[in-house]
Design a protein around this nucleic acid. Structure first.
Lengths: 341, 341
DNA sequence: TTGTAAGCGTTATCAT
DNA sequence: ATGATAACGCTTACAA
């Protein structure tokens, strides 16, 4: 049993206890092969006796290298981002690195606090899903020496590595699926348009609509204030209020939370899904498949997204010949009950 | 614009650039009042010119104090824990501390890796929702000097601070609610029984059942392998297979994920909820209210749980007269459509 | 108000 | 195979 001491045991304490020099202790820590089995054992015993815990600050200061990656999430409450984090962690673990997480919660002040902290900690690299991908603070981080990759967002220039999913294509897929099912009056539900991804998904929807040669007015656009469940409910009421001749027979929602809200409103008001209203969501979160009417959704390769981001970061941090890459993944439509013909 | 240099600028570099001594630079960092406005300004200019980022390892090594708390989550994909984390972060932020997160994902190896890492980083304190609250590794952490509080779990002894919710009472509330609604054949759905919380919720259910003087056999117990959506679906099929005379008219699920699965199975097989099957969940996650039939659920004060845990930890880390406390919160039943009479 | 210098715990180089 | 010693970048007395 170790005795909680007033001051944590240091290598020096271990050395004294084991009757060896401090350098030898460091060797059992870092090059165990360089030390004889007998002394190694003695040192290791002393370590557990004293409850020795290596001081990472000192190690890092001297060695000049950190063994951790950090991911600043946009919204830890959204299952999408925790899946991305899981992919990052898998890649980090495979490379012998640890991942620590932080949540900006969409607050710029918190985002920059966390960015600062991690820079000061000299993490090997930083992943971030930024509130604003164009923000100059990201460039500042990298200029100061911390490799940084942008996750699930893109930037207009190519000065960063980034991984994202083709949202224009995703919008296309959703609408093409509904057209295939014979729908000719469709609603896009989502917002605000300040979010680049919402814009892209809408654009993709419009492109597919135009390609089909349908009257542009038959694609109703319902802009919401946010992308949560309440927004979906509200949109449902707005759709229900339309004259039946103009009422859409299908809706494409900019994310699953919104789609779930719309679904709930429909069911509780007696609208049958998919017979009277087909619904397509976006993200394919776990709850989409588990909804009362399993939701057709555009799936993004979340875990793979994280994995790729981590790989890019590890390359940027370790490879001198590194060149920035903007990786764009392809989304995929998962058809379920909510759009069954 | 700062120039990305081959080696990060140090206080010494800043001192040289500003034409002052290294001690003065440190003063503008730590005691800005001790230095004249003129030199302070000069030093600050030099800092931005050089893109100076304070080295936290060196700071911490010398000052001996960390400004961060860490939370090792059990399952980052479960919205319950991210809400808890939010409460922790709020309390940490209020105390001028940062919070970093890690996910054990129910893997003991990962849990202990993360625990090790944070100990080595000498974080001010550690919060953890452990895979096994009785594990001796928790005691080892604390013995080695890192304050640790247990979150959403309890331990048999009182050697730790902990915060949890009264699960026996929660089970009681669920069953009493169903009894109030007139149900006399009820199923408990959840498992495995290795999880203390599942045991407690079941125990509460049984106590309430016994108090009502009903035949013990009329409380059907359906044990599941896990607490996810699939488990709920499977349980639904098992219930449907019972002879109608013995088939429960209501089910109490050990968490919302399971309840959502049960609900989905019921709806897709034509069982009307709540008319033919009433459902009570547990946790009151956001998706519970957003389900096709909004779910009655036992709510735990998640954010408050986190806040309280952080407060305990901060006290343990900073207050010499600290005494361990086991805080137990009271759950609350939120009635919704799924149990409407 | 500012400068000087010691030391935090570790790693790594060089002797032995 | 092991021991002595000089950094790493910073904070903090203490001296000027």
């Amino acid at each position: 049993m170790s005795t909680p001491s007033i001051r944590a045991a240091s290598v020096k304490d271990v050395a004294t206890a084991a009757g060896v020099s401090l350098g030898t202790v460091s060797n059992v820590l870092n090059r165990p092969d360089r030390v004889s089995a007998a002394t190694r054992e003695r040192v290791e015993r002393a370590m557990v006796d004293l409850g020795f815990v290596r001081n990472e600050s000192a190690r890092q200061l001297r060695a000049g290298t950190s063994r951790t990656l950090a991911y600043v999430m946009l919204d830890a409450g959204n299952p999408f981002f925790t899946d991305v984090a899981q992919g990052i962690e898998a890649a980090a673990e495979a490379a012998g690195l640890s991942l620590v997480l932080c949540n900006s919660g969409q607050l710029a002040a918190r985002e920059s606090r966390h960015l600062d902290l991690f820079q000061q900690q000299r993490v090997q690299g930083l992943l971030v899903t930024p509130i604003d991908p164009e923000s100059p603070t990201l460039g500042a981080v990298r200029d100061r020496g911390t490799p940084l990759v942008i996750v699930d967002r893109t930037r207009d220039d190519t000065t960063f590595c980034s991984v994202a999913v083709d949202d224009v294509l995703g919008g296309r897929l959703a609408i093409e699926h509904l057209l295939d099912r014979g729908h000719t009056r469709v609603a896009f539900v989502g917002g605000p348009l300040g979010i680049g991804q919402v814009r892209d998904r809408l654009q993709g929807a419009r492109l597919a609509w135009a390609d089909a040669g349908l009257p542009v007015d038959d694609l109703t656009v319902v802009i919401t204030d946010s992308l949560d469940v309440d927004a979906g409910r509200g949109a449902g009421q707005r759709l229900a209020g339309l004259p039946s001749a103009r009422r859409p027979t299908a809706a494409f929602c900019a994310n699953d939370m919104t789609a779930l809200g719309l679904l709930q409103q429909a069911i509780s008001s007696g609208t049958r899904v998919p017979e009277q209203l087909a619904i397509v969501g976006y993200d394919d979160i776990q709850f989409a498949a588990a909804a009362a009417v399993p939701l057709t959704s555009v799936r993004q390769p979340r875990v793979e997204l994280g994995r790729a981001a981590a790989a890019l970061l590890i390359d940027e941090a370790g490879n001198d010949g590194h060149e920035h890459q903007q990786v764009v993944f392809t989304p995929e439509l998962v058809a379920r009950e909510s759009t069954r013909t």
